[in-house]
Design a protein around this nucleic acid. Structure first.
Length: 410
RNA sequence: GCCAGGGUGGGGUAGUUGGUUAUCCUAGGGGACUGUGGAUCCCCCGACCCGGGUUCGAGUCUCGGCCCUGGCCCCA
């Protein structure tokens, strides 16, 4: 028997419905903030991703050559494609651009809990606004989306300037190593590394920086620097917004293109892969041939959200099943059509068996049965049975429709 | 790429030291049953992940691969 490729999943209707429910919540929230959906190709030129992230990621991607010999890759993420799209066709649109996407991505990695080779991301990019308000808006939107997903999470907000100030004397390779240690909260590793570089005093300052939970402490370590005012303004807005977050100067993020604010969110129930969101302020457009454009955004690991939510059956809508005898068939078809026109999920019996057996089938998926035989056909009525209470009555079609439609508890 | 633990009908499972026709539950299909439901009874369907090796004989032992679960690495 053929298997599905490693790290991919099939989704049955129950799971698909609950995924769509969450997805639709994310879309709705984003829409209320004025963000509009975009879509980019499933695959792109390989260079788009290597320009941004380096050659090293080739082994983590699905890379292939098409019949014309072009080197292509299934997208491993969406920020680069979105910014490529912006450079290609968004430059003349009025700024700022508020875009969101919901799309699948592919990474050739070892699957584990919450990590698959095909996975879905919901993300937002705010392009062309370079203010504390822009950064705050993106964080607040992220917070609202996560809150609407019915999971418990913690939101950490940081800024790369703090670390940069302390690290500016080191050469770039050492800076990068030091950031990685901090990002992983590996203080022992950091101390060891920096003392091998004769920078022991630095590691102490870095570690206390990473432990800071308010700005005064941070600035007492870093001293004053030009961006201070802007950073203070950003956090003032966050405080005024009332969202719950933690200041975390230890966030470094993996990549070099982040320029300032960075933030991450973590959920429970997730094991080793518990980060559900990551984002920040960055500059990428110039890498793809555009003007240097300030942007910020975030991406949500949709599948991890679903894991963190746990088993939650999706809402079942109202539904009726139509059972009929041979004599009642033509009237039953008409009745079914009317129910569907009223927006009710309506399943017609396909077995042609006895009424009892039809009801037996219907009761497995519907809360109402509509029974049509020769009596109903002659009098143009329907027999509506509530399968929960067992109560049934014979009504006009119109009354049956309003009974089903009007009863919101079903 | 690395480590640990796994893989028996669709799902969940039993299977002793290697020994007859691989156990049970559930789901699914059919029937009893063409004007009143989820019940019951009967019947059916359906599995040892793949390949090599050891053996008279392998679900069981062994090697390799694939896949799953979790962890490491990485995390754009």
């Amino acid at each position: 028997m053929l298997q599905k490729p490693r790290g991919t999943r099939d989704f049955l209707p129950d799971e698909m419905e609950s995924r769509r429910e969450v997805e639709s919540t994310m879309r709705k929230v984003s829409a209320t903030w004025g963000y509009r959906e975009i879509c980019t190709p499933e695959f792109e030129e390989l260079d788009l991703f290597t320009v941004r992230s380096g050659e090293g990621i080739i082994q983590e991607m699905y890379v292939f050559e098409d019949k014309g010999g072009r080197k292509l890759a299934l997208r491993p993420e969406l920020t680069a494609p979105v910014l490529r799209m912006y450079v290609n066709e968004g430059k003349t649109l009025p700024k700022p651009l508020r875009w969101y996407y919901f799309a699948d991505c592919f990474r050739y990695e070892r699957p584990q809990k919450g990590r698959y080779r095909q996975f879905w991301q919901f993300g937002v990019e705010l392009i062309g606004a370079d203010t504390p308000f822009a950064e705050a808006e993106v964080i607040m939107l992220a917070h609202e989306i996560l809150s609407s997903c019915d999971i418990s999470f913690t939101l950490h907000v940081g800024h790369l300037s703090f670390m940069r100030i302390l690290l500016k004397e080191l050469d770039p390779a050492d800076q990068k190593r030091a950031r990685m240690f901090l990002d992983k909260r590996d203080t022992a590793g950091l101390e060891e590394y920096l003392s091998s570089r004769d920078q022991s005093s630095l590691s102490e300052r870095l570690i206390s920086l990473a432990g800071c939970r308010n700005l005064e402490e941070v600035f007492s370590i870093t001293g004053d620097f030009p961006e201070r005012g802007r950073i203070e303004e950003l956090f003032t807005i966050l405080d005024q917004s009332g969202i719950h977050y933690t200041l975390n100067p230890g966030i470094a993020r993996g990549l070099d293109y982040y320029t300032g604010m960075v933030f991450e969110a973590f959920a429970e129930n997730l094991g080793a892969e518990n980060q559900v969101l990551g984002g920040g302020t960055y500059r990428l457009a110039h890498l793809f041939g555009g003007e240097d454009t300030p942007s910020c955004g975030f991406a949500i690991g949709f599948d991890r959200i679903m894991v963190a939510r746990g088993e939650k059956p999706a809402e079942v809508g109202k539904s009726v099943g139509v059972a009929c005898t041979g004599e009642g068939r033509s009237w039953a078809l008409h009745v079914a059509r009317k129910f569907r026109e009223a927006g009710i999920r309506t399943l017609f019996d396909l077995t042609g068996k006895s009424i009892g057996q039809q009801l037996s089938g219907i009761s497995r998926f519907a809360v109402y049965a509509v029974i049509i035989g020769s009596r109903e056909q002659e009098t143009r009525t329907v027999t509506l049975k509530d399968l929960h209470s067992g109560v049934q009555k014979t009504l006009s079609l119109q009354d049956a429709l309003s009974e089903v439609c009007g009863d919101d508890t079903r």
